[in-house]
């Protein structure tokens, strides 16, 4: 009985200390390189909400600065680096792709890399009954390349196209010949899949999961290195026959170049502390995010590795 009480008290102490976590950073100003309502906006505001709600960060403010597909905000952060030590910019995989394309005059290595926080895996999606496995799809494509049109939410040569091509290549199809149809938003691409305009959709697992649970679509495979808890029946692409097709669409935070190490470490510690809080769990669950935490040096090597893989793929596809 006493023991039980003690455990209860310990748990009580633990939860209360979690609720009033130690404040690690006074305030963070989030620079959002896109408009309100977008993915970057949601990530920054959600993260800020969790950090301040848990008491890890004293206060958070948000600034939307769109333009140049995010290039304007990156430029702003670099040009005013000295006065922006209190600022974190959210960004994601496209920063790597666009730098490779030469569209951005900047690269992620021009910034201080704080941490990757969340991510999503790529998924190849078909309508139920059309192809049951990735091998079926590849066989159908190899038999008649004009029978398959692939759709996605990015421009041709963009992320969804790259992921789709990566998986098809690894599974033994010549991805350069696949017709790729770009769509505005995930929703419209999904409608195109259901209406039969495209035979396979390259998208994020997060977007496909709900539809798959509702039985509207089948997910052929996901670009993770192991099966994920949310979709235990879905094979990884490696398992499905596309060996080595691994891709994470990450989101994370960057700071101004030349940020002192102690400040950068304080931000990293704040983000690391965030994952254990109930406030974060609420935000994460609400948005369906997958935790992929890559702090500091891990983030640097992760990004360099991703740049290498994407760069090779883009060159071999003729995207560059």
């Amino acid at each position: 009985m006493l023991k039980k009480l003690a455990v209860g008290a310990a748990a009580l102490v633990a939860t209360s200390s979690a609720a009033h976590a130690e404040q690690l950073v006074d305030s963070i100003h989030f620079l959002i390189p896109g408009g309100a309502g977008g993915g970057w906006d949601g990530t920054a505001r959600g993260t800020g909400e969790a950090l301040t709600g848990a008491g890890i960060v004293g206060s958070a403010s948000y600034e939307n600065m769109s333009g140049g597909g995010g290039g304007v905000a990156i430029g702003h952060l670099i040009e005013n680096a000295d006065s922006m030590h209190g600022t974190l910019m959210v960004n994601s995989t496209p920063i790597v792709i666009r730098s490779l394309q030469g569209v951005f005059p900047y690269n992620f290595s021009d910034l201080t890399m704080i941490a990757g926080t969340i991510g999503d895996f790529g998924a190849l999606v078909v309508t139920p009954g059309s192809a049951t496995t990735l091998a079926d799809l590849v066989a159908a494509y190899n038999a008649d390349s004009s029978s398959i049109a692939m759709g996605g939410g990015s421009v041709p040569g963009g992320m969804d196209h790259l992921i789709g091509a990566m998986v098809m290549n690894a599974a033994g199809a010549d991805a350069t010949k696949i017709a790729y149809l770009p769509f505005d938003a995930g929703g419209v691409a999904l409608a195109a899949l259901l209406s039969g305009e495209i035979e396979v959709l390259s998208t994020g697992l997060g977007e496909a999961l709900a539809q798959s649970k509702a039985g509207e679509v089948d997910i052929l495979c996901i670009t993770s290195d192991a099966r994920v808890a949310d979709a235990p029946d879905v094979p990884t692409c490696s398992e499905a026959g596309a060996d080595g097709a691994y891709f994470v669409n990450w989101r994370g935070f960057f700071a101004a170049p030349g940020l002192p190490d102690d400040k950068a470490d304080a931000y990293r510690a704040a983000i690391a502390a965030m994952y254990a809080t109930p406030e974060w769990e609420a935000v994460r669950a609400r948005n369906g995010w997958v935790e992929i935490h890559n702090p500091g040096a891990d983030f640097v090597s992760f990004l360099e590795n991703q740049e290498q893989i994407i760069g090779d793929l883009m060159t071999s596809m003729g995207f560059l």
């Binding site: 333009g67 140049g68 597909g69 290039g71 569209v103 421009v155 041709p156």
Partner: peptide, 21 residues
């Protein structure tokens, strides 16, 4: 800029970043 899905390169921006969108 690159408003269209088929504009996978910014068009007619002459390298001026704020016009890219």
């Amino acid at each position: 800029g690159e408003g269209s899905q088929f504009a996978n390169r910014p068009r007619f921006t002459f390298g001026y970043v704020p016009l890219q969108d």
